[in-house]
Design a binder for these strands. Structure first.
Lengths: 141, 141
DNA sequence: CGCAAGTGTCTACAGGTGTAGACTGGCATG
DNA sequence: CATGCCAGTCTACACCTGTAGACACTTGCG
């Protein structure tokens, strides 16, 4: 479950993530700044997302109130993984390399990324040292 | 030029990248380990890639020899950019965060990424200091 | 010379996506 | 009660992608 979503689908479920839940009209309004879509179009999109199992609705009077069934982070992870597999054969460092070369990373981004990386590394180091007790020494001289 | 490619399209052009150029039959053979596709299917795929402008062919006797018109790195960059825009609204740090949280990054990957990052930062720092010398406080000469 | 083998072309179809009009039924208001 | 607004449903259509069969043409081989 929780397949990859297209840009438009992301925008639609994005409105739901922002608000917690929303009617078709509210989603349509929430999309407004970016796209002008007919109400029925939004309804179709939501129905299809429901078929895919990523959103659900409940009745409220004569209208439906949709809510997301998957979190943003879940979708993100699924999609990043699929993307890296698809395009880079699962090779994350290569992807990072292209990313850094693509002129879409600002110095400030870089700082943030380094921080994240340090955190993640600390985490892994902790795990690794626990592993070492069981596993024996690593290959690093 | 050089839109995003699907997984299958990546595999097809991947054969061309590997070999420099190839006939339909060669591409079909090159795909073999992964997918069994009819010759006409491969031919269709190549024609469509040609329409998109990412490959071209020349005649050699009665067969076509296809070659890539874009490099792997170009495609990678285009696709990473499109992906980050589509899924993360262009927010690279967020993507990296999800990436690191997605359990697909090994300690060794982490080391490589940190190195890349350091290099890139050094590069940006150089550029920044040059800018400062020329640019000073305001941006208008 | 005639035919098999190999090659490109055309056409087709199913499934997904973006987009929306036409249709239907209920509810509020005059 | 009648009428129109508003919400959901159905149907449709164009375009992209994956897949491939039916055809036509060329050429090497017997």
């Amino acid at each position: 479950m929780s397949r990859s979503l297209t840009k438009l689908q992301m925008q639609v479920i994005g409105v739901l993530w922002e608000r917690g839940e929303a009617t078709v009209a509210e989603v349509q309004a929430g999309l407004k700044p970016n796209r002008e879509l007919a109400r029925t179009t939004v309804a179709t999109l939501l129905s299809r997302l429901e078929e895919k199992g990523v959103v659900a609705h409940r009745d409220r009077g004569r209208e439906y109130v949709y809510r997301p069934l998957v979190t943003r982070v879940e979708i993100h992870r699924t999609m990043v993984r699929a993307f890296v597999d698809r395009v880079f054969g699962g090779d994350v460092p290569t992807m990072v390399k292209e990313l850094l070369g693509s002129e879409m990373v600002e110095p400030d981004d870089l700082r943030q990324i380094r921080t994240l990386l340090a955190e993640r590394q600390a985490e892994l180091d902790r795990t690794a040292s626990i592993d070492n007790e069981v596993d024996g020494p690593a290959e690093d001289p």
